[in-house]
Design a binder for these strands. Structure first.
Lengths: 240, 240
DNA sequence: ACATTTAATGGACGATCGTCCATTAATGAC
DNA sequence: GTCATTAATGGACGATCGTCCATTAAATGT
């Protein structure tokens, strides 16, 4: 499936590459580089990405326990030697997959919370919550992968680094927003910290709820639940 | 596994029954049961418990991925054939271990939340929270095991049944308490549900925080954080 | 005392694990 | 076109996996 898609793209790009080198020299060089990255039949970086993708898919499908080198290679359509060649071993591939997954989460989170510069702090907080609970970030595949990685994190230091929601930027985004809200009417020094850490904890809990019972889960109700808690924390704010 | 358990139980009961008919009828039955359980050198049930204990310890130590039959037997001091003999295979042992772990959690939770019959609903809620975050329930061993099981739950149906905090009794305990609090001054139909589910979610999040950063974790602050959220949800209640 | 039943052992078994490498195929340089 | 370089293959390798069973040991029944 993915393999077919990749192959057809590769062959067409190869033709473009030859045409370009025939006509121009300097430009052709640059283009061939770009073309190489995209479509050439020999593209190590693309293969690495393909292996990472296959690893994550396999974990989501059959769990980390049954995710073996053979299974990953079978799914990616690549030979068994590729993992050792590109990553030096299964462990490094798993770590790279965790890193990729984490980066993808935050990338999508950034994209969805890019409000204007004059957005209210309440809106910014709610944007983070709604993004975290959106189908783009919270879906069967991502929850399974996420909890699978966390489950083995404590015995796999390389993965532990990427199995925490406590990404610095995200924490600071929330803390800054809560700080703006609190300075108007707050006095407790821990209010901002508690709101930040509590919001993250509530989102974690919602992910667990989703994993445990996908049928009965409601994104709308989950968002409203967190908003209700925040409304209690900051009276007058976060009103529906 | 269950079948074997049933068989051994049957035979022992049969034996006890015959002894009892020889000497005394009712009392003999009880005594021979107790004596066999405690002192006999051949005690299948004790071996089963020993294997479950060793399984949980191994998971906490080196993670589910590296928890093999050999490793479990090595730790328990028993021979490699015992797992197949007593549980019929590794999978059943893992499931039994998850069940045991879950039962132990709720047993301890019950013990710590057994307040008098005239305890206020607020006190009952806080008792649950404080128990959940106490060292008896929240410690390095239990967090590692808990998240390890949850990580493989989605690809291991037998374990999934025991990897949810949403134990019925615990949920009902909280819901009842929140219901009593809310009926005095609440009108929103979802308030009780949100308080219940939000409290569980916050506790989940605290467990994740503990797993992620045991050094920086503070039980006291975590309890206060949740209390603060509940105080916001039920103004006037849960005051420090 | 002996016979019977059950607990427990530990090695055999095939399958599969992850790693590594000799080989082949494709590419870039001249 | 030829050569050097690099990507990619797929099988060999020893280790270890989980399962199973012939055997031994212990407890029970007669």
């Amino acid at each position: 499936m993915l393999r077919q898609n990749g192959l057809s793209c590769q062959s067409s790009c190869e033709i473009d590459l030859r045409d370009a080198t025939k006509q121009l020299e300097l430009l052709g060089k640059v283009e061939s580089l770009k073309g190489r990255k995209r479509g050439s039949k020999r593209d190590p970086e693309a293969k690495k990405q393909l292996l990472i993708k296959a690893t994550l898919d396999t974990i989501a499908d059959i769990g980390v326990t049954d995710t073996t080198v053979s299974r990953i290679c079978e799914r990616s359509g690549l030979s068994r030697g590729m993992i050792h060649l590109h990553f030096g071993g299964k462990d490094n591939l798993l770590t790279a997959a965790a890193q990729h997954f984490s980066a993808q989460y935050y990338s999508e989170m950034d994209r969805m919370t890019d409000l204007g510069p004059d957005a209210s702090p309440e809106d910014r907080v709610m944007a983070v919550i709604e993004a975290d609970l959106s189908e783009a970030l919270l879906n069967p595949r991502s929850t399974k992968i996420w909890h699978a990685f966390r489950g083995i994190a404590s015995s796999h230091p390389g993965i532990a680094r990427y199995s925490s929601t406590q990404d610095h930027r995200l924490v600071e985004t929330l803390r800054l927003a809560f700080s703006e809200i609190a300075q108007q009417n707050g006095r407790d020094a821990n209010l901002v910290d508690d709101a930040t850490s509590g919001t993250l904890a509530l989102m974690e809990g919602m992910w667990v709820n989703y994993l445990t019972d996908m049928q009965g889960f409601s994104r709308r109700r989950s968002v409203k639940l967190i908003r209700r808690f925040l409304c209690g924390l900051f009276p007058g704010k976060f009103k529906l």
